[in-house]
Computed example of a mutant assay.
Amino acid sequence: MCAAVYVLSTVMGYVLTSALLLKCPTLLHRRKREPFLSRHISHRGGAGENLENTMAAFKHAVGLGTDMLELDCHMTKDEQVVVSHDANLERSTGISAYISDVAYADLPPYLCKLGVTFQRECVCEGGEDKRIPLLRDVFEAFPKTPVNIDIKVNNDTLIKKVSELVVKYDREHITVWGNSSNQIVQKCYKENPRIPVLFSMRRVLMLVGLFYTGLLPFVPLKEQFLEIPMPSIVTKHLMRDPDKMTRSQHVITWLADTLLMRRALFNHLTARGIQVYVWVLNDEKDFKRAFDLGATGVMTDFPTKLRDFMEKNGTAKSLNKLKTE
């Protein structure tokens, strides 16, 4: 009897402590410093309004007042760091070749029209700018704009060169980098721990597990940015024919959405100084849901649409403003 009472009191004590720390994590963890706050994030510069990852897209997004540019990096044969999403150029240029096998001067231009990955049956038609830019071009053009870098391949030289560019342009305080691969994120952190890193997919799964077991409030986290998809967009934008989804696919999507899209999780992380970005959202209903759940920021292919939504709903007060503390 005494043993049962002891076990029960111990469990109750753990539950109460976990609940308290979930709401007040700074009792145990020092809040991470936030040199900038991003509410409005332009995915590939705004792939629904300009050709993705081009200087024209980035200039347009910054002109609108975006808080952050999201982009992707590869390395050419002559070891130039370029901004492009795919390792192979066929989708974006019509030429079947890998970026790593082509010198920068020989890279073909983008096609006139590119499909928008996260908007079903949507094509973006570009203007004059079809050049694949260098990462340094972006840094030079937008010295004060935070940039979110997806390191697309597990390449030590690429990681080193990106770090060198970030340091050269004095951007360690306004850059975040990483990948869904845990190995790439670990290499990024080892190469330059002063540049904040994203949670890898493995670490996201760990985070969710810790949250539902009540252990999250007790675990230190080195990452400063959680960047996750809203699973419900799978049926809306990624499936060619949502009506043909199997029952198991619907169940998996619903379960993933239910587990990830949790206000308590988002609030706990933001209280610890970890920003939560939800991607890639392209309509007002999803914008609203993400912000209502407590997401720090939304990543979109349509920066004009997101800006208009934020202004209309009073969530645009942090646009294009660095925090001073």
Rank of each mutant, 00 (worst) to 15 (best):
P25C: 12
E52Q: 15
L198I: 11
A4L: 13
T26W: 09
T145P: 07
T76D: 12
H237Q: 15
N267S: 14
L293D: 05
T17A: 14
G209A: 10
S96E: 11
V176R: 06
S248M: 13
K77S: 03
F118Q: 07
G214L: 09
L51C: 04
K317R: 14
K222L: 07
T54H: 01
M310L: 14
D170R: 14
E70F: 06
I149P: 00
D292N: 15
V278G: 05
L293G: 02
G13P: 08
V278R: 01
T315V: 13
V280R: 00
E70P: 10
A4G: 02
T175L: 01
S18W: 06
I149Y: 10
R30S: 15
V185R: 01
L216P: 03
N267R: 15
L158A: 04
D283Q: 12
D286G: 08
Q186H: 10
G63D: 02
F218H: 08
V15R: 14
E227N: 15
L22R: 12
N50D: 03
K23A: 15
P133K: 12
L165R: 05
Y212H: 14
L135W: 01
V276K: 03
F218W: 09
T145I: 10
R120F: 06
P35R: 08
Q249S: 09
C122Q: 11
L135C: 10
L114M: 13
E121P: 06
D286R: 09
N154D: 15
K23L: 14
K130S: 03
K222Y: 10
K113H: 14
K152E: 07
R171I: 04
V123L: 13
Q275D: 13
S163F: 05
F36D: 04
L21I: 03
K288Q: 14
F218E: 07
I159M: 00
V11W: 13
F302G: 03
P109I: 04
D101G: 00
R120S: 13
N179F: 01
G45Y: 12
L28H: 11
K160N: 12
E311S: 05
D86Y: 00
D301A: 10
T324K: 13
K113V: 14
V276Q: 05
T253R: 08
K317F: 11
K305P: 00
H74A: 06
R272F: 04
P109T: 03
D156P: 00
E79C: 05
V219H: 11
V116N: 02
N320L: 05
